[in-house]
Amino acid sequence: MKPSKIADALRAANPASKPRQPAYTGTGHWLYWHSPSGEMLPIGVAIHLNGVTYRQIAEHNDIQQTVAALWGETVAWQLGKLLDNTTTALYDKTGNLPEGISAEAIELCQGDNPAQILDRLWRHGVADSLLLKKKPPSQLAERSISGSNPEAVPDEPAENTRDAAASAVVPPKRGGHGQ
């Protein structure tokens, strides 16, 4: 049986399923700092939507104390410079990430608006970083937007638009029970 026919049958058998039609679809990158002890620690996330790059990078002030405690003041100061250079590299699309910072591709990101996507990626990814874990995300990061199309700064979330994992088929009777 063709996958699309199976999908139709599953939708029909699960009338409570909801289609997802995200307003924004794009790609992104997790940004990691390579610590002196060899770990790759998340320090930010960047997403690319309709030619615009949106980024959220840890504030040096929020991680300085932890980094200094773990690797010393010099490393903490150097990381501050690296964060600045990372921000610059993301702003300037031709710039390469500084040495000590690497990126891992996010193949797909979707959501109602860029701020929402960025926020979710931050909370479910970067915020778990050893460097950031105990602080609320709102106090942790610089938010900024760069790219060739600055007028595309997002509006407020639209009602009834949906997020990633388009067209979720959910169970008909059991609520959160997946199958």
Partner: peptide
């Protein structure tokens, strides 16, 4: 896993 879902992905996704 506490929950699993059957989801329908588009070809582009």
């Amino acid at each position: 896993a506490e929950r699993i879902w059957v989801i329908i992905l588009s070809n582009a996704e």
